[in-house]
Design a protein around this nucleic acid. Sequence first.
DNA 1: CTGTTAGCGCCTTCAC
DNA 2: GTGAAGGCGCTAACAG
Lengths: 346, 346
Amino acid sequence: MAVTLRDVAVLAGVSVRTVSNVVNGFRHVSPPMRERVQAAIDQLGYQPNVVARSLRRGHTGVIAFLLPELSVPYFGELAHEVIEAARTRGLTVLVDETAGQADREREILDLAANSGLVDGVILSALGMLGREIALLRPRVPMVLIGERLAPQVFDHAGTDNVRAAKDAVKHLVDGGSRRIATIGAEPGTGRETSRLRLQGYRAALKAAGHQVRPGMVQNVDNFHRQDGAVAMRRLLALDEPPDALFCFNDSLALGALRVLFDAGVRSPDDMRIIGFDDVEEGRFSMPTLSTVTPDKPAIAREAVALLADRIGGSTAPPRDVVVPHYVVERESTAPTARTVARKSAV
Amino acid sequence: MAVTLRDVAVLAGVSVRTVSNVVNGFRHVSPPMRERVQAAIDQLGYQPNVVARSLRRGHTGVIAFLLPELSVPYFGELAHEVIEAARTRGLTVLVDETAGQADREREILDLAANSGLVDGVILSALGMLGREIALLRPRVPMVLIGERLAPQVFDHAGTDNVRAAKDAVKHLVDGGSRRIATIGAEPGTGRETSRLRLQGYRAALKAAGHQVRPGMVQNVDNFHRQDGAVAMRRLLALDEPPDALFCFNDSLALGALRVLFDAGVRSPDDMRIIGFDDVEEGRFSMPTLSTVTPDKPAIAREAVALLADRIGGSTAPPRDVVVPHYVVERESTAPTARTVARKSAV
DNA sequence: CTGTTAGCGCCTTCAC
DNA sequence: GTGAAGGCGCTAACAG
């Protein structure tokens, strides 16, 4: 059995109360006493039992981060940031995967939020609909990250998807592209991210006086490289393929890039491409990938801050923290001889 | 306050013992009784307090997976597999990052292993040396993954690094490459992975009657894409650059590939490249990346199995599970006109 | 088959 | 400044 507070007390010849006081850094303990107790602690190698402490205190110091899949670059990077942000507040992170499926989200959320194991939950939901989430009553605080699904009920941290998408497409428009396609629509799934980015795409085209042409909006089942590859094949099969492309995330864009290369279509020369997320991978792809970068560290920091605030007892109305985004121009949308010529002609 | 076992017992008009029995699916509870209790549970929305249960039972049902960094593709993918493997055994995973630094590994390991919060630990250590790890006496079972650092003390699951590296280089040799460089040595760090893969590289060259030429072994500080890029620049600056390259992981290879492209050197035509890990990214790079694939799901599965076994009380001597690896040939080492010609000339 | 009860290890209110 | 004791919610002996 592990050594307990009592063991230390016996060895030091004091009461458990006193040991507890020095362990928890209480003031009002005489220096000699503190020293004696500390010696006993060191000698026995005592370490507080977090579970017992949690039972007594009513909180555990661990928060759950529920996300679709760690092997997806964006989520791996985001989890890294969340863990980092939590660490600065002395919080430990329990990561669990939902595969983006509603039933697993429900199951895992229920377990995490109601078992007393964690003090709060950060949820990146993909499967559950906003109206379902809004009805949730987790016993511990919950903040939403990414999809802004129930802003009137839960805190949320994320970027302005519509504006960010619009900025991405505007970047293509400004560069002289005319036939701008997009990959990432998910009709019928009710997924916010996809819906909002599509909205931004349409808004940008409209603002530029362009039309949304048939075939230019490619649906996908998922946001993986493979889905981008499949969609790009369909795009290339069009009578009039696009001269530019906005993908709803970088993985889709990277998959599309690969197909483009196989087809002998060059980027940016023949097709300018911009993604979304700014994953590390896009800084080394060929060509390097232009993208919209949501400030991931900021999203993580804000989400953890929001959660810590609730755990601390805040009953303020739900807050929605919008984190800034930036368009990052890399090779995949760099000006080419052709686009430069076209622009100067205007 | 949350509803407790006692509340349910009162409502159902039975003792807590009976409620506990139905909650834990005990037999020997009369159907009508079970039904009555269940009704009370549903009515109150009762959920067991995991913390209290853990304190009583002495275990929590969560295991820790300590790794260097989730944003590194290999670890993101491995974490995904570990979570998956743990789930099939009803275990939850607490992921924490160490940045591969010895002091943080110590600190986090100490916290995880001795606080009672987790039932066991899977550690992918990079900073701590084997001799230090061998001296560790965590209070909960620990299994090592990746680096085989203290096989006489702790269970371990991983691939045979020497043979895998040897196979990778043999693949280059067999393809007709003559000047084979390698990126990933970490002299002076004491890191096993690097040391073993270098050993495999040397062994393969020796077996083929090749020499290890000066400049052909490129050191790195880390295994990120950027490190591969930097090393590749040095390689290209050599009087006689290599015609093939073995990188100790895929990220290094992907970074190297990018620099190669910028320099106008084509792969596989001018330089054949093989990596290690088989991350998803390498299936979409240009060219797609040949690699040695350790069976990640198997590594995760074995590590979790080993740990579960120890948690279950096994006192068997430390086991070392060697998971198979395979060389995967993709575009970056595909036969080229040149190598084919050279081989047929032999 | 079901009720009673003693802790699991810790923190904290109450006395001193 | 320090000691004694109750109880956080649950499980599992021990009765009956």
